[in-house]
Amino acid sequence: MKKLFICCLFSLSISLASYGQEGFSVKAGVNNVSISIDNDDDFFGDSSDSELGFFVGAGYNFVASETFDIEPSILLSFVDDLTSLYIPIMAKYKVSEDFNIQAGPQINYLLEDLPDGEFGLDIAFGAGYQIDANWFVEARYGFQVSRGGDFGDFVDINTLTAGVGYRFN
């Protein structure tokens, strides 16, 4: 199932690359994953934890209009014991030539050996700044909307990412 999912994503990326675009990019940076657990227990109560890690990945920016772009990405996140694959599809509104604000859905897939709840859906928002023709920085926060299985009934996983990227024009 995992191989089929990754093959489908790769095929989608290749087919999308054939349309008008601004360019392929590579990205890397730091991320902070916060996990909140609702124990439904008066004695133990709720608990939360936050872990710092890093991510690497790639994306492709499609120009939709003068002020609007769409950028799907595939990011591999490494945080202590929680390796994940993130697939944000960000709509980017260009506030100026160099600055943009971003929002969109973000699919996440936990690559750890969990019995249930590997897939999740986030709503992410953030901002980006184009330093020059190739280099850019961006940051975003993803709020978990849903997670599959029983795992999602009591666990929330939210993610803050900040990184730098290089766009091949």
Rank of each mutant, 00 (worst) to 15 (best):
I14Y: 04
D80E: 10
I6G: 09
K27A: 10
P88C: 09
S50W: 02
I70D: 00
I70W: 13
S11C: 05
Y86E: 08
F78V: 07
F24G: 11
L9H: 10
F5A: 01
L76F: 14
A64M: 12
S65H: 04
V30R: 11
D41R: 00
D46S: 04
G45W: 02
Y19T: 10
I35P: 00
F44Y: 12
Y86H: 03
D41W: 06
G59D: 02
T83I: 14
N32W: 15
S36Q: 08
K3C: 03
I6M: 09
L85S: 03
K27F: 03
I87F: 02
S48A: 14
S11A: 04
F10P: 13
G53C: 12
F44N: 12
Y86M: 02
A17Y: 13
I87Q: 01
G20N: 13
F43Y: 12
T67Y: 08
G53N: 15
L16M: 11
L75W: 06
A58G: 15
C8A: 07
N61Y: 04
L76P: 03
D41M: 04
F24R: 01
K27G: 08
I37R: 15
V63P: 00
F10D: 12
D49W: 01
D41E: 08
Y19N: 04
I35M: 05
F44V: 11
V33H: 01
F78M: 09
G57N: 07
G57R: 03
F5H: 02
V26S: 08
V33K: 04
T83N: 05
C8H: 05
V26E: 13
S73K: 12
S18H: 09
V26H: 05
S13G: 07
I14P: 01
F55E: 10
L12R: 00
P88Q: 11
L16E: 06
I14W: 00
V63Q: 08
G45P: 06
G59K: 12
L75H: 04
F5N: 01
S84C: 04
F62E: 14
G20W: 05
Y86R: 01
Y60H: 07
S36E: 05
A17I: 08
D69A: 13
L12C: 03
V63Y: 00
Y19E: 11
F78I: 11
S73L: 06
F5M: 04
D38Y: 03
I74T: 05
V26C: 14
G23Q: 02
E66K: 02
G57Q: 05
F24T: 14
F10I: 09
A17E: 08
D38H: 04
D46H: 07
D46K: 14
G29H: 13
I35H: 07
L85A: 02
S48Q: 15
I14C: 10
S77Q: 09
G29C: 13
S73I: 01
D38S: 07
D41F: 06
I70V: 10
L75M: 06
